[in-house]
């Protein structure tokens, strides 16, 4: 749904660009394709790596690990799993809602969802390639901090 809107918007922009300047648009296409090509050597192993990790860390396993566990240990586990696992939000959100109805607490779900979205252990290699080691690691630490803050707030407020 979102993706198709994105396709339409970028498609319209490309058409406008083409009408205004043919050569520039051709150059844009070339640049876009080139960045895609540069992305490939790091993104292909990532896709396979995620496939391997998720085949072990499936939604089922996640349910088992977070299902009835609560307390600080549960929240920490949730954040560790969230940082390593890699699943799209449209899989993660229903999974989280399901976990809630099966006895998991809000703080654990908060830790899982938040670190899942913002911390990327699997994509760290790619991130380092783009922004250097220091920036990539510090950004992920910031994201982990954000998840911890979120968990603590949910713990107090919900």
């Amino acid at each position: 749904m979102t993706t198709s809107i994105f396709y339409i918007v970028v498609g319209i922009l490309t058409i406008i660009s083409f009408i205004k300047d043919k050569t520039k648009t051709k150059k844009a296409l070339k640049i876009g394709f080139n960045s895609f090509r540069k992305l490939l050597p790091s993104i292909i192993p990532m896709m396979i790596g995620i496939g391997l990790i998720l085949s072990i860390l499936s939604p089922n396993t996640v349910s088992q690990l977070l299902g009835e566990k609560s307390g600080i240990l549960g929240a920490i586990t949730a954040m560790v799993i969230g940082s390593i696992a890699f699943m799209p939000s449209f899989v993660a959100f229903p999974l989280g809602a399901n976990l809630l109805s099966h006895g998991a607490g809000f703080p654990q779900i908060a830790g899982f969802i938040s670190s899942l979205m913002a911390v990327g252990v699997v994509s760290l290699g790619l991130e380092i390639k783009y922004f250097g080691k220091m920036t990539a690691i510090l950004r992920n630490i910031t994201a982990l901090t954000a998840s911890i803050v979120f968990v603590l707030l949910v713990w107090r407020l919900m």
């Binding site: 993706t3 994105f6 970028v10 660009s17 520039k24 844009a28 296409l29 896709m47």
Partner: peptide, 30 residues
């Protein structure tokens, strides 16, 4: 299951990336 997950990852990647790459090109020239 790793095979099918990997395939679906590639599917997501190939559906998400083209407009983003195109946008990058347009941003660069305009």
């Amino acid at each position: 299951s790793a095979n099918s997950l990997t395939l679906s990852n590639f599917g997501t990647m190939l559906s998400v990336l083209p407009p983003i790459m195109l946008l990058i090109g347009l941003l660069d020239v305009w």
